[in-house]
Design a protein around this nucleic acid. Sequence first.
DNA 1: AGCACGCCGACT
DNA 2: GTCGGCGTGCTC
Length: 712
Amino acid sequence: MSLLIPRDSRVRSRIAIVRVDLHINRSFHYLVPEELREQVMAGTRVQISFGRRKVLGTVLEVSETLDGLEVAADALKPILEVVGASGLITPAVLQLAKWMADYYLCPLDLALKSVAPAVVQKKGKMRAVRSRRDPELEMAVTEASTLTSSEPPPLMAQQEAVLSRMFEWLDADSSQEKKPVLLHGITGSGKTEVYLQVIARALEQGKGAIMLVPEISLTPQTVERLRARFAPLDKPEPNAGTGSKPEGGILAVLHSGLSQGERFREWQRIREGKARLVVGARSAIFAPVMNLGVIVVDEEHEHSYKQEEHPRYHARDVAVMRGHFEKALVILGSATPALESYHNAIKGKYHLCRMPERVDGRHLPKIRIIDMRQETLRQKGFAIFSEPLKSGIQLRLERGEQVILYLNRRGYSSSMLCPKCGFVATCPHCSVSLSYHRQAGTLQCHFCGYAAKAFNVCPQAECRDPSIRFAGMGTEKLEEAVSRAFPTARVARMDSDTMTRRDAYERTLLRFRMGKIDILLGTQMIAKGLDFPRVTLVGIVFADLGLHFPDFRSGERTFQQIVQVAGRAGRGDVEGEVVVQTFTPQHPVMKHIRKQDYEGFYQEEIGFRSALQYPPCCRITKIECASEQSSRAQYVIQQLHKLLLQRLGPSIRVLGPSPSPIEKVRGRYRHHLILWDTRKKEHRGILQEIFASLPRDGEVKVFPDVDPIQML
DNA sequence: AGCACGCCGACT
DNA sequence: GTCGGCGTGCTC
C-alpha cells in the first residue's frame, strides 16, 4: 500500500469508523487527516477510497485509539474529503438513525438514507433556485389577511395555565431529560397559539425548534402564522447586495414541493444556524437543527406521520426519541389523540395538558346523528341528503353562511357492475374494484393509479348489456347531487382530482374565505385545521364509510375524522351544527361522536384493545412478503414463520401467515404475519438476524413494519 | 453495490 | 488452446 502512513509517528492519529454507502453490513476504519480533524465527527459525510473506487460514507464514530482494531494502522487509508461541510447529519440525528435501524428493523444504511435528503448526502452542488412563487396569489393572500397579526393575542386562562407548565419544563436544567407532553385540546381551543409561544420562548433562549405538520400543503395557514409571528426576528442578510430580499430568515420550510436546489439550500441554512425554526412534514424531524429546544408534532394522531416505505418509521415516535436524545421538550398536540399517545399520557409516560374549552367562550357545535335507514324508508329509497341535512343547508344558504360536506371517497362511484351478468370492473394490478370518474371518463384504481376508459356497455363479449351500473357514491357524484338540489349555491369540490395544481388548494380555500363559495365539499383534505368563521354547518354524508374495514383502528379513525371535520363548524360568532348521516347509529363509536367525548371513546375503545391484545395494550410488528407470484411470497413468509418459531419458540405470539386482506397491490401479491410483543431487545436482535439470514430471493421483497398502521 | 478471482463449455 | 459464463468473496 503506497499511502505512506509513517508506522511510528501517528499512532495517536484519529480514526474514524465509517459506514460506506454500499450494501455492506459493517463499517470500516479510516484515518482522519490532520487538516480535517476539526470537521470530522459522528455523522459527518465523507469521501473515501474503497477498493479501487471512491465512495461516500458516514462517520459513525471518531476514536483516538486503535483498540480492537484488527487491521494494522498502516493499512488504513485516509479520509479524502468532507462532503459539503460537516454537520449535515448532526451527531444527535446519527444517534436517531441508529435507533431507527434497531427499532424499525432496517439496515443502518437505509436509516442513514432516510435521515438526509439525497441531494444533501451527495456532493451537494448548489443549483439555481427556481422561484415557485405566485405574485397574484400572494397579493390576494396579503389582502385577505384580518387574521395574521404578528402580535401574540391575549390568552385564555386555559392557555395560560398550559403555557406556564410548558415554560417550566422548557426552562428546566438542560442536562435533564424532558418528559414529552400530550396537549389534548379540543378543536378551536387555541393549540396553535400555545405552540407559537413555546417556540418563541425556545428561540429567545437561543435554541432551535422543529414543528411537524401532517402535510405541509394542507397547512398553509399554520405556516403563514409562523411566518407572520417570527418574520420580525429575521435580520436582513448583510450580503444581500442585489437588493432582493433573501428568502427564509429564521424560518425554514421543508416540503415535498421543493426542488433539489431549494431543499439543499434550506438544509444548509438550518445547518449553519441561520434558520433555527423548521416547519415541515414527516422527514423534517431529521433537520440538522443544533441545540434543539422544542419539537411540536401538530395533529399527532394523523396517519401521514407514518412512512409506508421501508424503514416504516412514525415521525411522532421518532420525534419523541429525538427529544429524548437531545433533551428537548416534545409537544404532541391533537383534539383526538392517537390511542397510543393518550395511553402513554394516562400511564404517566407523557405529561397530559388539557384545553377543554374553545377560545372566546365559543361552543362546540351540536352534533345530530341521523339514522339513514329511517330516512331511506321515509324518502322511499336511497337518499343522499337526509331531511335535516337538506333543510340545514337551505337555511345556511338563506342566511349567507357557509357549509362543509365531508365524504371520504373520491370519484363518481366506487364500483361499476353489470346487473345482467354480474361483471365487476376490477384493477388488473390490484385486488380491488375500479372507481368510476365521470369527468375524466375513466375507471381508476385508487391503489395504483391505473386508469382505463369507462365502458358504455358491459365489456363481457357474451353480455354487452348497456345497463351497466355505478354503485357507491364518491365526491364527484355528491357534487352533482348538491348542485342539483341547491341550484343557486356556489359549490366547490376539494379532493385529489380537483387539487392537481400545486396552488389549487390554497386558491380554493382563499375563495372560500372570501365568501365566494357557499358549499365546500370534499375528502379528508377538508378535515384538517381549516378555520373559517362563517362555516356554521358541517355534514358528514356517509359516516359509516371507514367503519367496517377489517382493521382494529377503524373505530378510532372514524371517531377522529368525524370529530375533526365537525370541529370546522361554529368557529365564528354563530353557533355551529353538525349532521352525521349513518346507517349504523347504534355503533358504539356514534354515541361518543354525538357527545364529542374523547375520554369516553378512549375508555370504551381501550377495553376492546385490551381484551383483544391490540395496540396500545400490546405492541405488534407486521412482516410482509411481496412477489409477482403469490406462491413465492407465500413460500418466503412460511420459511420466515418457521425460522421465527425455531428461534423464538413459544416466547412470541404469531398470527398468520395469511394473504393480506387486499392480496394484490401494484401487481404484487402480499402475504403477512403479525408478531406480538416485539419490544424486547433480544427479540429485535433475533429478528434482525433472521432477516439477514433469509435466503435472498431478489424478486420477493420482505418488509418488516414495526407498530403498523396500515393493516390492509 | 462493484469488481475481482476462479473453475468449466463453445469458438478462432 | 482461449474467451467467457456468472458463483463466491472482499473492500479499512
